[in-house]
């Protein structure tokens, strides 16, 4: 290839992409820009969250309302042990106290008694609020020490008729409720998000300091 020939090709290209067409094309160029912008916004805000989280149902349905009416309060099932640790989701042993036999006619009740009570198998509940392993969350400090209500962090789950599907972040493996259902991370209620910043904000407000790392980490 000769040096001059190469140069000419170059000029032609430059010419075709620049100069003459420029004015008429600028609107089209802008349109392309807007298309790119809109598409990526849609992907980022709508498609991405759908891809990021997987949904699964709990082993069977459960009504907090019915149970709360029957036993009176949260602590009957979600209690503190003598050593101050929090027992969390009730074990089969606790449930059996009432559910030795099938009560009522609901499908969930049948599944529970037949598949779990009869077999002596623990129900593999998926916990919406389980913090990562590196977190030490003291229920005692919050419920007993600071006299906080369950709803402040857990929202109105105590008044729910049935269990919502469990959503898991496919990448991190954590429950969606930690980040919150709003992908932007914005929150309205105190229970919408349970990231470190949220703990910190509350601590800062109520205790004057976000606290040291070892207050909540292990």
């Amino acid at each position: 290839m000769s040096l001059t020939g190469e140069k000419q090709t170059g000029r032609e290209q430059t010419g075709s992409s620049g100069g003459p067409e420029e004015k008429g094309a600028s609107g089209v160029v802008a349109l392309f820009f807007i298309v790119g912008l809109a598409a990526s916004l849609a992907i980022g805000w709508i498609v991405f969250p759908k891809l990021l989280y997987s949904k699964s149902e709990q082993p069977f349905d459960f009504s907090h309302v019915t149970h709360a009416d029957a036993v009176g309060d949260c602590e009957s099932c979600h209690f503190f042990r003598e050593d101050g640790s929090y027992a969390g989701v009730p074990t089969l042993e606790q449930c059996i106290e009432c559910h030795e036999e099938v009560q009522g006619e609901s499908e969930a009740e049948r599944v529970f008694v037949e598949e779990y009570v009869a077999e002596g198998r623990e129900v593999p509940w998926k916990s919406y609020s389980r913090q990562p392993d590196c977190v030490f969350f003291s229920h005692a400090a919050h419920v007993k020490g600071a006299q906080m209500e369950c709803a402040e962090c857990h929202g109105d789950i105590g008044e729910s008729e049935s269990l919502k599907p469990y959503e898991e972040n496919k990448l991190t493996g954590y429950s969606r409720d930690i980040w919150g259902s709003n992908i932007s991370g914005m929150k309205e209620n105190s229970w919408d998000r349970m990231k470190m910043e949220d703990c910190g904000a509350c601590h800062k407000e109520t205790m004057g300091s976000k606290g040291a790392c070892f207050q909540c980490h292990k």
């Binding site: 160029v29 790119g36 990526s40 916004l41 805000w45 932007s184």
Partner: peptide
């Protein structure tokens, strides 16, 4: 045009979570 599309996509992605 591709450049514009790319810039729009980049801007949009940066503005998305």
């Amino acid at each position: 045009h591709f450049l514009a599309l790319g810039m729009g996509a980049t801007a949009g992605t940066m503005l998305s979570p």
